[in-house]
Structure formats: C-alpha cells, structure tokens
Write a protein that binds this DNA or RNA. Structure first.
Lengths: 242, 242
DNA sequence: CGACCTATTGATACGTATCAACCCGAGTGG
DNA sequence: CCACTCGGGTTGATACGTATCAATAGGTCG
C-alpha cells in the first residue's frame, strides 16, 4: 500500500488548513468524526505520479497542500493538462471504476485520502457530504468550461495572463481580490506544465511572459516568482470577463 | 411564464424517449410519480435562446428531443460553445442562483422542465435522484475535459473528425459502436456553431470537411448530411484515443 | 425571379510551432 | 575549488497552419 517515497500520517481535522473548503466543509460533529475515522494522509514528491489513467481507483482524496495536475495525452505524446488540483480540491470519482486522467504532483503534495468504498458509504449516509460533492463537481465543471473558452478562443498573450490571474486568485489568501494593488505570486508549475495547461509550447509561454514584462504588466524575479504591480492591467491582458 | 413561441404540454413518463437515460433514469414507482407531478414540457425553435448567462435560473430541465448549445463569449464577440445538450442531457444547476452559460436551441427542442425549488427538494429526498445527478455531472466533467484536449492540442482536421465521431456516436442508436460499417449522420448544427464548438472558423471547418471528403474518409450529401463509409478511418483522422 | 442566408473556395496575412543556439543555476566529481 | 554536466528557461530564425478578407456558389423563401 505504501509506494517508495510516499509517507503516511494523520492529524486532527480541527487543524486542517482546508477544513472549511474541502469535501468535508459542510460536515459537523459526528459527520466529521466518521470521515476522520477512515482518512489517512499521504505525501508525494514533485514529479511523482499519484494515479494513472485507466488504473482501478481504490482511493479518493482531498488536496491538503501542494499542487497536482490532471493530464491526458494523445498517442503521439501531445499532452493537455485538463485540470489543476490545488489545496481543498477533491480528486477521484465515487461510483467510477477507473481513473479518468493521470494525476501528477507538481510540487510536494499532501493528500487526505479515503478508501473509496467506505467513502461511498458515507456519501450515501451523510447528506451534507453528498451536497458538497455535487457542488464541487459543478464548480469543476464551470472551471473546465471557462478553460474551454481560453483554449478555443484566446490568444497566447491572453492565455498566459489568464493563467497568472488564476494562480494569483487561488494562491494569495483565498478569496482576496488581489486585483487591488501589488501582489507577488509563486508559480507552482514548470514552463512545460504551464504550456500544457494553456495549449501552447514552452517557447511561446516564455516569450509571452517576456512581452508582458516589457509591457510593464508584470515583473519577473527569477523564473518562478512574478510580481503584479496592477491587477487591473493583468486582467485587461487576460481578455477581461471575470 | 410563457414566452412567445414556446409551447407547454405534458406526456406520461412511460412513453418518454429518454426515460432510462435522463436524470430520472434510476427513479422507480413513487419516485417517478413525484417527478411527474412537478414537470412540464416546453418547446423551442431553432435559434431561440432558452436561458441567458447571468440570469436568475428558475427551472432545471432534461432535453427530451432536439439539440441545444451552451455558449460563452468574450466581450469582443469571440464565442465558444462549451457544451452540447442532446436528448437525455440535463440543464441547469441545483443549488445555484444564476445561469452559467447561454443556452440556445440549435434545432427544435423539447425540454422536460422542473421548477428549481421543488426539484431541489426532491433531490434531498430521493437518493436515486441525487446519485444520478452526481453521475451526470461527472460525465459532463469528463466530456468537458476530453474537449479540452481537443481544443488545446488537436489539429483542425482532427477536430472536425472528432466532432463527426461524437455526433455519430450520440445520434445513431445510442451506444451503437457505429465504427463497424457505413453510417449516415445528420448534423444538427450550422457550420458557425460547429466552428464555435471546435475553436475554429467557419471557413476552416468547411475546408476540412472537403479535405476529408477528398481523402475518402467521409462523403457529403448536402451541407448537413454526412456518410461515413468506414468508422475506423474517421477514428484514425480524429487522432484515435476513444 | 430576385433576395437572402449558409456554405464553399481562393489569396494572403499573421500567430504560434518548430528547430536551434544559448544562458543560467544547481549538482557532481575529479 | 573549479570544470563539467544537466535540466529548465530564454531568445532567435524560419516554417506552417489557421485566420482573415474577398469572391462565388447553392438553397430557400417570398
């Protein structure tokens, strides 16, 4: 059950950083106890594959910390990142046999795992859990569709700017507008992963970052740290709408 | 409650063509009765907007017949179709205030509608309904992510071929492989809508269809009717994988 | 028959991919 | 301690695919 470099441990839900945003958000008292009883933590290193597409899935999990990607590929190697898993995001499909996409850790990742079958049982028994599950699935669906607009219709510049906005919004204090004044973000992904998320090549991502810098929209501090002096300017470059 | 060219009526669920594939698929006896009590049918003409993005949503619905699109746009008019609604598909978001995307009838469309609040109540009370709702949401999520691969990584030729395969799979007898031998499909969408679904222009869609015809992969019978002599050839042109 | 809308076909422009060289920082081993 | 290597990132020159602009064709309705 233990893969080489994955470790297992467990902490009290009370201190969990995603307690009120994850799948368990609506659970209280006894409900959270029952989840607590069947959970276990597990950590992964950058680059490690957490789950393989097509494999039988035995667990579902919440991301506690770190970033992972959902990835699909064509036979010739072309690859598309179809989703990011950030802290509080849920991974796995109750009611499904197999895993739909490769899940790969982009940074150090800690998951709060549940065996699938006990979890499915709780899903049936705890309405709060079921409601939250549906809500999160619909949120993911919205996110996927917003990304379809980006992939199908936005220019490279807009794509890169949109991506930076997404990271800024979700990595700063959750729900801080970040639009106001200066903010600094740390990219959790390599250029390659960013390119695969945006439907671009590494080179194009790199070039667009340079152009955004020359235009004064962002500032670069090494390859992974980005300063946003004026959120509004970035939003404009992203093609606006949200 | 009645918009100019929408009509209302109601039939028995027993004769419903989507009875065993729609949101109600798992409901039996009393459960289907309770759904039946709160449903009403409603029809729309091609081009009619069924719901507007941002509007407050008062109803949710199953598509009984016809095809509708889910659409988003950027301010400058660039448009992306982010989903197709085919018979048995569900539209609307329990638990959400507003509508996420424009819904537009592509053909004559008949919906089986439910007032949102009574439906949400049934969702809480009928586990079969809740399960099916989650299952369908996850199916849609899979479909959206498969489309992200198409939008981000496939060539125009592959996009068009993939689209034809999608229509062939869902319009023939549902779940017929269609890969075997010759089949004939009727496109329910104009070139413009197809283009907006594939992240292409009308012209490119048209050209790729012509090329596929010249390559003998398909045959055209007017603008909307397409013959597929060999499903395998089309699947190959689509970039394979499923 | 003419008007109109949708679709096709053609010529050209432009944006991004591709191929290639180079840069930089981090390990690694002599 | 420094040269070497290696992976990730940037920059440059060019190719290619799709968008754009424009003209033409076909089908439908009054």
């Amino acid at each position: 059950m233990n893969s080489p470099s994955a470790t297992q441990f467990k902490i009290d839900c009370t201190y969990c950083p995603v307690r009120h945003r994850a799948i368990c958000a609506r659970c209280e008292g006894d409900e959270i106890e029952r989840l607590n009883d069947i959970k276990h933590y597990r950590s992964y290193e950058p680059g490690q594959t957490i789950a393989f597409q097509g494999e039988k899935s035995e667990i579902v999990a919440s991301v506690v910390s770190g970033v992972a990607t959902l990835t699909t590929s064509l036979e010739d190697g072309r690859t598309q990142v179809v989703g990011l898993l950030l802290p509080s995001d849920f991974m796995g499909r109750p009611g499904r046999e197999t895993i739909a996409h490769d899940v790969v850790a982009a940074t150090d990742v800690t998951l709060c795992c549940f065996q699938k079958h006990p979890f499915e049982k709780l899903l049936e028994e705890i309405p709060h859990l079921n409601q939250r599950m549906l809500e999160m699935a619909l949120d993911e669906l919205d996110a996927a569709r917003e990304w379809m607009l980006l992939l199908g219709r936005k220019s490279a510049r807009e794509k890169v700017a949109s991506f930076l906005l997404l990271i800024a919004r979700r990595s700063g204090n959750p729900e801080a507008k970040s639009l106001g004044s200066e903010s600094k973000i740390e990219l959790p992904l390599s250029r390659e992963v960013v390119a695969n998320y945006l439907g671009l090549t590494i080179e194009t991502v790199s070039r667009q970052l340079t152009i955004l810098r020359k235009d004064g929209v962002i500032d670069l501090e090494g390859a992974r740290t980005i300063l946003i002096p004026e959120g509004a300017a970035l939003a404009e470059a992203a093609g606006a709408i949200d």
